[in-house]
Amino acid sequence: MSLRQEILRLGLGAAFVMTAGTATAASTLETTQKNDEVACGVSQGLPGFSSVDDQGVWSGIDVDVCRAVAAAIFGDADKVRYRPSSSKERFTALHAGEFDVLSRNTTWSLTRDTAQSLDFVAVNYYDGQGFMVRKELGVDSALELDGATLCINAGTTTELNAADYFRTNGMSFEAVTFEKSDEVVAAYDSGRCDAWTTDASGLYSNRIKLANPADHKVLPEIISKEPLGPAVRQGDDQWADIIRWSFYAMVAAEELGINAANVDQMKSSPNPEIQRLLGVSGTMGEKLGLRADWAYQIIKQVGNYSESFERNLGENSHLKISRGLNALWTEGGLMYTPPVR
């Protein structure tokens, strides 16, 4: 680039204006390929879902969706541009094209699917509201919480769900509400309430902030449905398919017993399902508009769903969340993938 061009560029660039070409003409996949990275909307930090480590590297189960998509498209899971967005601006930012996948612990609901013009493509974490109590209380079920004081975030659906649940079961409770979740944690920790209720993932991720995490347990009852999953803009079905199947490839890999360590051996497996998934036979990649080894790259670089879960949320993480609803359907959970054929 000549000096003159650089000066010209400086002048233009000074306005910070980036013209990303005409977005309407090109499909999202084409735009992504041109930019050589997947623009992925993540949270502003939620332990286990998307957070930043000491080196500034994003990790988490939501981040792994972004990485899987990048691995499927480019064969390189690191080709992701993370766009942290607040819960208030996430949908507009997706529509405005600031990012192409929203993988940000977002609950799939009818209104969001329709009125917000989103397409939820899969559920990567089945969450739901739960209760945490002190072990010394001797409570084993939420049904034993009659008359308890509950620490709750003010003005959220959490509060309404709890009220519904207690009324349905003919129990009473006293709510102690707080504006911020940090205050709720502090109040519960100081013993102001018997139990603390929020989404189960939140209970687990905040438990490690308590003075003695081992003294507390999460009760088995889940009283609301919070299916969290990646979403895309409505209207680009090919793109939605790519995100959906990038995630399903991870679940399918777990079903088939393929993981990052054994994926190379598995390539020579005689099982036709494995052969199709790994691109040894069939044209699955081509049908998605991707390379033949798309799923191989995902599994090799990101791992199967179990590996991602255990690394970010489960036993290998600080959170120690059990699989619960997120176990495979064959193991009593809800994780199920349509056949890859």
Binding site: G45, S51, V52, D54, P84, K209, L319
Partner: peptide, 14 residues
Amino acid sequence: QLTFTDAGWSTPQT
């Protein structure tokens, strides 16, 4: 606040 969400450092005093 973002660094609070790093589970590797989450303690009562973080």
